[in-house]
Design a protein around this nucleic acid. Structure first.
Lengths: 120, 120
DNA sequence: GATGTTGCTTCGAATTTCGAAGCTGCTACG
DNA sequence: CGTAGCAGCTTCGAAATTCGAAGCAACATC
């Protein structure tokens, strides 16, 4: 192994551990994905509903994010052929499994992250 | 108020709940932040060390991310005036408080997120 | 049939992210 | 001394992403 000087600990070892984290934040690390999942936390919702619920998110990006989350099978796109065709997005089991983690992050923000941009 | 048709539940109510999540993912939702925090999980590390540990992250972005995380007081920048000046980054208490959540996300990825980009 | 709502898509512009290179300060080698 | 190397960044355009506004088809409401 290319063992060079280690100042404190072997950082290279983290790379393995972080592989799962890298995969997770390949999805969650995009600007609105976690918020979309968070908005679906309490039940299914339609496109326009989500668009209004998440402030600052444009339609084009929302469509992109929903497609991505659907592709990763975190949300499911259900089409109800009415006549008034209605599209509903809801979390899959995979998506629901992520909710406890999101709750924990939310709790962390409440406890440790001040509302101001850290200006205090 | 503009109360329109609700298909399933009142999504507007989520906005309040998601405020903490929004704040959290204002930081974690940027492309490398969570990985940087994850790399500091096991102890302090230097700039170059982090640069090599996180594959694909360029120096310019790393500097940006470290500055941001430092501004939010998630990491602490310690300067050891040698003569060989050494800079060390380490998690603050606020940053350490986030680790359990990151571990949970990592565990979720191991259980629910296949290594392939959802192609299975 | 005029207006409004839903579920998107397309467009060009603004913002962000990127990699490569460069710079200072120090050590090590010869 | 001279060259080489490493640490810790900063600067620079180029590429990728994100943005808001507008448009469109299908339907409901007035």
């Amino acid at each position: 192994m290319s063992a060079s000087v280690r100042t404190s600990h072997d950082v290279d070892a983290c790379v393995q551990v972080d592989e799962a984290l890298t995969r997770a934040f390949g999805i969650l690390g995009k600007r609105w994905n976690a918020l979309v999942l968070g908005s679906l936390r309490f039940g299914p919702a339609g496109f326009r509903e989500l668009s209004r619920a998440i402030d600052g998110l444009s339609d084009s990006v929302l469509a992109d994010r929903l497609a991505e989350l659907t592709r990763h099978q975190l949300v499911h796109r259900r089409v109800d052929e009415g006549p008034p065709v209605a599209v509903t997005y809801e979390l899959t089991e995979r998506g629901r499994a992520l909710l406890p983690a999101l709750d924990q992050i939310s709790a962390w923000a409440v406890e440790h992250l001040p509302p101001e941009p850290s200006a205090q």
